[in-house]
Structures are given as structure tokens and as C-alpha cells.
Simulated assay, not measured.
Amino acid sequence: MDKTRVIALAMASGWWSGLLSAAALMLASRLSGDGVPTGLNGPSHWFFGERAAHAQRFSIRHTVVGTMTHQASSFFWASIFATLRTRRSALDHGDARIAAEAAAVTAVAAAVDLLVAPRRLTPGFERRLTAWPLAGVYVAFAVGLAAAALRERRHDLMARACSSPHSPHPPASPRCPAPRR
């Protein structure tokens, strides 16, 4: 396993999954009749107590800490996903398999977040969202994981095609990506 590939995929999938699920949290909060930052305030409850999970307005205290906590959690789960994706047997999996692996890691994350973790360590936003909006947040998370892995796979496939002696594009072609180190 190439550690640089694991780190690169963990960073990319962590950013995408965190950003997409944060956007879904804000949308779900608004559609549920709460303030837009309510869902992002929720994760700060581990530090500031139960009132933070119900805070409705933007604040440095709740929104920034909650967003940072949410993003850190995204990087944690993305690192597990990246480790699974970069093992030798997973490198040639197709798009459907990548999406299924993203969904599986997300399902485990949701189970741990909502069923296993002590109440103080749950995401906090589950206290304000009903089942469907909550599921939408986790779907957005899975989409972020899959999008990063699919982008990496496309890059690798193009690099392989360009390095082939039968490639229609010479290696110096703008269509050929630079090789990964």
C-alpha cells in the first residue's frame, strides 16, 4: 500500500464528504424550520454541552467548533475509506464497486455515530433532524467519498492508457495526466 496515495485519497474524500454533508446539514436544518447553522452547531455539543446541539444562530463558539468537529470526523472516516480503496485488490474495481464501498463505510459511520457512540460523542445534529433529512446528510457524505475515489480512478485509468504503447495520445499530450509519484 502506497502511503502517499492513502493520504491523498483521505484528504480529497475527507474534504468532499465533509463539505457535501455540511451543505446537506445546512439545507436540512433550514427545511426543518431551524436556522441554517443549527446542524453545524450540533457537533460542538461534545465540548459545550447539550445546549450547543440546539443552538439556532451562527456563533464562533458553536458553529466554528461544530464545523471543525464535523470536518475532523469526515477526515477520520475518509482515512478508513482511503485505506480500503488503496489496497492492491481494490485498485481495479469499477464505479459501482467504488460507490458500494463508499455506501458501506458511510453505513458503518452512521451506525457508530447514532447507535454505538456515547451520547456526548454523537454528531449532535441527529437531535434536531428527523430520519429522512438525517439520511440525506449521510447520503451526501457517501457521495463525497465516492466522488473523490472516482476522480482518482479516472486519473489512474487515463495515466495507464497514456503509458500504453497502443495509446492514441502520446505521453506528452495535454490529455495525459502527469504520473503520480
Rank of each mutant, 00 (worst) to 15 (best):
V137D: 04
A22F: 06
F47Q: 14
Y138N: 04
A8C: 05
A8W: 03
G35K: 05
A103D: 05
A10K: 03
A161Y: 06
A99Q: 03
G94K: 04
P174G: 00
A78Q: 05
M158A: 13
T67K: 06
V139Q: 02
G14N: 07
F75L: 03
A23M: 10
C176L: 00
D113N: 02
A96M: 14
P168F: 08
V105P: 02
M11V: 10
A82E: 05
S89Q: 11
H169F: 12
A28I: 01
S32K: 10
R87G: 10
G14V: 04
R51M: 14
F125H: 13
P37D: 03
F75V: 04
A90K: 02
S167E: 06
S173A: 07
G18N: 06
M158C: 10
A22M: 08
H166C: 10
H169C: 09
C162W: 01
I98V: 15
G66L: 04
A23P: 08
G136A: 13
A24K: 02
P123F: 15
H166M: 12
P133C: 08
A148K: 11
F81Q: 09
V108A: 11
I7N: 08
D95P: 09
W16A: 15
P179Y: 07
T4H: 09
L40R: 05
L19K: 12
